[in-house]
Design a protein around this nucleic acid. Structure first.
Length: 806
RNA sequence: GCCGGGGUGGCGGAAUCGGCAGACGCUACGGACUUAAAAUCCGUUGGGCAUUUGUGCUCGUGCGGGUUCAAGUCCCGCCCCCGGCACCA
């Protein structure tokens, strides 16, 4: 055909976007006979900044997979929504005296328009929004179920407090002692907070990683974060009292080497025996000092241990029967184990340092090191010494024996501990889901009845966070004051709201049945669609969102709401896109690239292609404007294939193998996050076609289908331009013939003594004799073999021919 | 400190059941087209040496050893970078 128009994405892209929308091309079908495929990307927080070039990277990746799956005959669910509660919106609203709902609506509209301009095949009819009362009704419902099962409880506890955001933070939100969001230093504050008992699921969260296909670093990080450790709890008698001091240790085998004990400054023992302690004032002062430090500061001062001996109290080592002192030090944390330890300075670095500093005895109980120089911490193979009935055993055997002994004598027991802490679920904020509970003087905490959900946020003109740390909702008396659902007496609503992680912990369930007002989603839909087949998201969500949503899912599984214990079958992760200067993109660094500008100047297909071609999908990579231009150039050249298209419903002889190879490569690479090499393969093929200067209709069709998932607009346009029947997105994914992916003849290298000295053209079936004959015809080979004897020949068909001479 | 991942041209990156290192793209340089420029097209582009200009030799994948006909790839010992965890007993 003769080509009239130039490639003009500004015209064809909006045209196709409207077409797909109007036709409902990517609407998920109700056809349950097809195999299903549920692709999920993390729904964005619609910030005021608008879309960032980092957003389209994972979206395009799974858009590619989704589009390919549709062409392979799957019923695909590829939805999108908004994680729209959150601090920036609230802060902006407070500052500008606008209701956060209005800000949210505006931000969503902007995001949506930007996403549409990129041509993603989302089924927009299933859009969800965590701030929509019809949605958070079910977030509240799940909370009530957790409350009902005793997994939500309110507790007075020291929390991480961000003085700038005026908000309590979960451990996971504290990064190096600073607020993850705003970066200011975190303080400890005691507050009465709602907690979720994620620790009850710790073991299952580890075990069920076996059921899923997550990239390794995600599994590793989850295990690491949950931090399982096996050991024993042991009771030490406090001399002269009936009180026992219980410790947790992973090294019960070293019990004979426990020469003193250390308790955390917050440990109740101090108050209990206030009267017997002769230096109470000193201890109280130490405790005050420790209180002022955050956990982070405590941890920072690793090198210099501090502590005070409790005078007037001592303990008995249960195996040696020796009286040992009890110390207080802030290197022991109240929040882990029992808040008390047995110190074995010979075999624990921290205890060793402490013992050296305060002149406490060090006893060697595992042979192999020099405990006067440093703690010897070999954990498995060392031999026990100075340890009574454990002498001569290996560490691992000694662990077994002593634990059995302790259990038999009633002095202790086997114990597993986890670093994972319960989830601080309260936020003292307005813009979040209200916690649907009422406090009644008489009945305590009473759930709002299910049929009264959702508990809506009160409509107010404006509000401010409070310095006391109370939620702004506390000031809105007409909302707070209510009646107790149980006794009908006066009650007060809970004024804390839920954290942002609440709504995102179950959103993927809602997509399966987004308008259901009877249930969070119908069982039928949940059973058909779940688990999510492929979930891609950022590594930064591994210990937060991913763990939380797995926890909620398991809880819903226990309730019978969902039928599979894990929500996501496969999890992958993308790398960040950095600024052109190789630094993280940020406004303050002035290196932010706005996707709107790229779409306006080069088109959405170029942006998509570039973001996939830019480099290894899993790694961070700097933005390059020149790279974008190169991708646009490729699409221009691709567009001009129309000029050299010739009729023909088969592959041409000269390109046939090439096409089969490319189909194979592209098909496989799209599945393995290797979008960059898939695109490179298509570029190579385009170069080869340009050399031939001709492309048959059959070839062009195949190529259009292969490129379609990456560049959907240009391929649809060219398909129609060529007068091919139907539309690209309705075509079947091309197949490759395994017999046709190998070249009949190949050039292989000929080596002499392992060095390449020439090249021969052989067929795969040629015997070594043929290779030798061809090789020896080469003057350069002759030069290197002349006058020498051949001692060995290595011939690997299709790979190499190596002659070893002497 | 512990646990992951990684170190390859000027740049982003290919190639790891051991088999021609640098695919593909960018940049740069040269040429064509143009009054000129842009765009486009063609060619060159890891270093060094030689060259009859066809090419040949040689060094080269963080460093030092090793295995092998053959090592970016495997083994041993180091260095550095990125991410996570970190006084968790």
């Amino acid at each position: 055909m003769t080509l009239q128009q130039k490639y003009n994405p500004a015209v064809i892209e909006p045209k196709w976007q409207e077409f797909w929308e109007k036709e409902g091309s990517f609407r998920t079908s109700e056809d349950r006979t097809k195999p299903k495929f549920y692709a999920l990307i993390e729904f964005p927080y619609p910030s005021g900044e608008g879309l960032h070039v980092g957003h389209p990277r994972p979206y395009t990746a799974l858009d590619i997979v989704s589009r390919k799956r549709r062409m392979e005959g799957y019923n695909v669910l590829f939805p999108m929504g908004w994680d729209a509660f959150g601090l920036p919106t609230e802060n902006y609203a407070i500052k500008n005296k606008i209701h956060p709902r209005v800000v949210t609506e505006r931000n969503i509209a902007r995001f949506k328009q930007q996403l549409r301009s990129l041509g993603f095949s989302f089924d927009w009819s299933r859009e969800v929004n965590t701030t929509d009362p019809d949605y958070f009704k079910w977030t509240q419902w799940i909370f009530l179920k957790l409350f009902e099962k005793g997994l939500a409880y309110k507790q007075e506890m020291p929390i991480n407090w961000c003085p700038s955001c005026k908000i309590g933070l979960a451990n996971e939100e504290v990064v190096n002692g600073s607020c993850e969001r705003c970066g200011s230093g975190v303080e400890m504050r005691v507050k009465n907070q709602w907690m979720l008992k994620i620790t009850a699921y710790a073991q299952r969260l580890i075990d069920d990683l076996e059921l899923v296909d997550y990239i390794d670093r995600v599994k590793v990080q989850q295990r690491n974060w949950i931090g399982r450790s096996e050991g024993a709890e042991v009771d030490f008698a406090v001399v002269g009292t009936s009180r026992k001091l219980r410790v947790f240790t992973t090294r019960p085998d070293t019990l004979f080497g426990a020469t003193y004990m250390v308790i955390s400054p917050e440990h109740p023992l101090i108050e209990e025996f206030k009267d017997r302690i002769s230096n109470y004032a000193e201890l109280a002062a130490y405790r005050e000092q420790a209180k002022r430090k955050s956990d982070f500061e405590r941890a920072e001062l690793t090198k210099d241990k501090t502590g005070v001996e409790i005078k007037g109290l001592s303990a008995l080592n249960p195996v040696t029967g020796k009286e040992i002192p009890i110390w207080v030090s802030d290197y022991v944390l109240m929040t882990y184990g029992t808040g008390a330890i047995m110190a074995v300075p010979g075999h624990d670095e921290r205890d060793w340092e402490f013992a050296k500093k305060f002149g406490l005895p060090i006893v060697e109980v595992v042979a192999g090191g020099d405990v006067e120089k440093e703690a010897y911490t070999d954990t498995e193979s060392g031999i026990m010494v100075n340890s009574g009935f454990l002498n001569g055993l290996e560490v691992s055997e000694a662990k077994q024996k002593i634990t059995a002994w302790l259990e038999e004598k009633g002095l202790g027991e086997r114990k597993v501990n986890y670093k994972l802490r319960d989830w601080v679920f309260s936020r003292q904020r307005y813009w979040g889901e209200p916690i649907p509970l009422v406090h009644c003087e008489k009945c305590g905490w009473v759930p709002v009845p299910e049929d009264e959900l959702p508990v809506l946020l009160p409509e107010v003109e404006n509000y401010e966070p409070t310095d006391t740390g109370e939620s702004p909702l506390a000031n809105i008396r007409e909302w707070v004051e209510t009646t107790c659902p149980k006794c009908g007496g006066p009650g007060e609503r809970e004024t804390d709201t839920m954290p942002q992680w609440a709504g995102s912990s179950w959103y993927f369930l809602r997509y399966t049945d987004p308008r259901n007002d009877e249930e969070l989603a119908s069982k039928e839909n949940l059973d058909y669609w779940l688990p999510v087949d492929w979930y891609n998201g950022g590594m930064e969500h591994t210990t937060l969102h991913l763990l939380y949503s797995r926890f909620w899912h398991k809880f819903l599984y226990d309730l019978g709401v969902v039928s599979y214990p894990e929500p996501y079958k496969k999890r992958t992760s993308h790398g960040m896109i950095l600024g052109e200067n190789n630094e993280k993109m940020s406004k303050s660094r002035g290196n932010v690239v706005n996707p709107d500008e790229i779409v306006a100047e080069y088109g959405a297909d170029t942006l998509r292609l570039y973001e996939m071609f830019i480099g290894d999908f899993e790694k961070s990579v700097p933005w390059s404007t020149d790279g974008v231009r190169g991708c646009r150039r490729f699409l221009e050249r691709f567009w001009r294939l129309q000029e050299i298209a010739v009729p023909g419903e088969s592959y041409s002889a000269e390109l046939e193998t090439n096409f089969h190879k490319t189909i194979k490569k592209v098909s496989q690479d799209y599945e393995n996050l290797k979008f960059n090499t898939a695109i490179a393969a298509m570029m190579t093929l385009l170069n080869d076609i340009s050399d031939v200067a001709r492309i048959t209709h059959a070839e062009l069709k195949t190529l259009l289908i292969l490129l379609n998932p990456v560049a959907p607009h240009i391929t649809e346009e060219m398909w129609v331009n060529m007068g091919f029947p139907g539309y690209v997105h309705e075509q079947a994914w091309p197949k490759w013939d395994p017999d046709k992916v190998v070249d009949e003849t190949v050039n292989i290298a000929v080596q002499v003594n392992g060095r390449v000295r020439g090249e021969i053209t052989v067929s795969l079936t040629d015997p070594v004799e043929r290779a030798r004959e061809l090789a020896m015809a080469n003057p350069n080979i002759q030069r290197f073999t002349a006058g020498k004897t051949i001692v060995k020949e290595i011939y690997v068909p299709g790979k190499i021919y190596n002659i070893v001479v002497k």
